[in-house]
């Protein structure tokens, strides 16, 4: 016996036309297989309709609240680590690329010579700068030079703090809504 499309009609929940309903009823009278299928589906529907909604143990919300702070802290730590690792990675890639470029554009002897020249130039300039600063400090009254030192040190500390703070804020961007 051919069970289609009767089986499909029984299993699907789409409404049938009057003609289809008659066809279905006639088929069910003759076919035990489809009758059993329909009865089983009615039983399944009954089971599913009667099933209750399961509830969690009391204190679910409190448990969520208590773990929320831990989860947030963990996520922040992960994001910060990811950010600084990315920064480190980017710096290493840049340095590597620069090294590769230098290695490809000049010979090792030239590189050593250039390195020596640049190092000497930097050392000479540093020495000049040191002499210049010393000369200025020697010409100024002592309290004035202490003030300049204090201002320079404070400025440096402040700049470092702002820089670290900005990095920290950037590293945490997008972790949570606000």
């Amino acid at each position: 016996m051919v069970h289609q499309p009767i089986e499909k009609w029984i299993i699907e929940e789409t409404p049938l036309t009057a003609e289809q309903k008659t066809q279905l009823e006639e088929h069910l009278r003759m076919c035990k297989h489809c009758r059993d299928l329909q009865n089983s589906l009615l039983e399944v529907d009954d089971l599913l309709m009667k099933a209750e909604i399961a509830a969690p143990n009391a204190g679910f919300t409190q448990r969520f609240q208590s773990t929320l702070a831990q989860r947030k802290a963990l996520k922040e730590r992960r994001q910060v680590r990811k950010f600084f690792l990315s920064l480190l990675g980017a710096a290493m890639v840049t340095l590597g690329a620069m090294g590769l470029y230098i290695a490809m554009t000049s010979s090792p002897v030239e590189m050593v010579i250039r390195l020596m020249e640049n190092s000497t130039r930097i050392l000479i300039n540093l020495d000049r700068f040191e002499r210049f600063v010393t000369m200025i400090f020697n010409t100024l009254p002592p309290y004035f030079s202490v003030g300049i030192w204090a201002m320079a040190a404070s400025g440096l500390c402040l700049f470092t703090l702002i820089w670290v703070g900005a990095l920290w804020r950037t590293s945490l961007q997008g972790v949570f809504h606000k």
């Binding site: 909604i53 399961a54 509830a55 969690p56 679910f60 919300t61 609240q65 809504h177 606000k178």
Partner: peptide
Amino acid sequence: QALNGDDDAFTQLVETYQKPVYN
């Protein structure tokens, strides 16, 4: 409120939907 950083507001949502989500 939760989007503005209010965790208590999100907790209200948890309280409301705990049963359907758990089920």
